[in-house]
């Protein structure tokens, strides 16, 4: 009973990190509960062999990445289209009710965020994972290297390449969006 309670506390402490990492890695809210549960079950099973060479947090990132990889494979098999990160039941009414400059900026930022999320899903899995762990989760090169089992130099290279690709894709997207607007004027 005590071991279960301790583990429940451990889950409570790390659940939001696991949920948000999985959400961005998989790009979908579908089955998020199940995936997060899978992460903690794998952690529970691995605890007897956990030698403490890293923090539980770093170890959890490693498991979360593995679970996301399995999910990518499963989706490839099912050939299912991914669902956007954006919530369909978002506050459209609220936005329409306040069409001022501030609301316009908010919409613009939201659209930009959405574009980044979409382009992030188009990057290679390894580049996406490293960008998320580095920027969103603020992990160090060493921690990412441990979580992914690759040399620090390779992590740096993928991070740089991923950022560059993302930037170019966003620039290209912005250029394409401006072009029809210029043609109509």
């Amino acid at each position: 009973m005590d071991a279960d309670l301790t583990f429940e506390q451990l889950v409570r402490e790390h659940q939001s990190m696991v949920f948000r990492t999985l959400l961005r890695l998989t790009g979908s809210r579908e089955h998020l509960d199940d995936l997060a549960q899978d992460v903690f079950l794998r952690l529970y099973r691995a605890l007897p062999s956990f030698r403490g060479e890293a923090l539980i947090t770093t170890y959890l990132y490693r498991i979360a990445v593995n679970v996301a990889q399995d999910e990518w494979k499963r989706r490839r098999r099912d050939d299912r289209s991914h669902i956007s990160l954006s919530d369909e039941t978002s506050d459209w009414e609220e936005r329409l009710a306040h069409p001022d400059r501030n609301a316009e900026q908010k919409i613009e930022e939201r659209e930009f965020q959405q574009a980044v999320e979409e382009q992030l899903q188009l990057l290679s899995k390894i580049e996406r994972t490293i960008l998320i762990l580095y920027h969103q989760e603020e992990r160090t090169y060493e921690q990412i290297s441990y979580a992914l089992g690759m040399p620090i130099g390779t992590v740096r290279t993928h991070l740089h390449r991923g950022r560059k690709k993302l930037r170019e894709a966003i620039q290209q997207r912005q250029t394409n969006e401006r072009r029809p607007a210029c043609q109509t004027t």
């Binding site: 279960d4 309670l5 583990f7 429940e8 506390q9 889950v11 409570r12 659940q15 939001s16 949920f19 948000r20 959400l23 961005r24 998020l32 509960d33 997060a36 549960q37 903690f40 079950l41 529970y44 099973r45 990160l85 930009f112 965020q113 980044v116 999320e117 992030l120 960008l131 998320i132 920027h135 969103q136 950022r163 993302l166 930037r167 966003i170």
Partner: peptide, 27 residues
């Protein structure tokens, strides 16, 4: 803007009983 977008963590809805449910389903 790109850095801000990357650093912005998505909002997640975690069920209130998630931790308890995981603990209940432990092998």
């Amino acid at each position: 803007r790109l850095l801000r977008a990357l650093e912005a963590a998505p909002e997640v809805d975690i069920p209130a009983d998630f931790a308890a449910r995981v603990a209940r389903n432990l092998p």
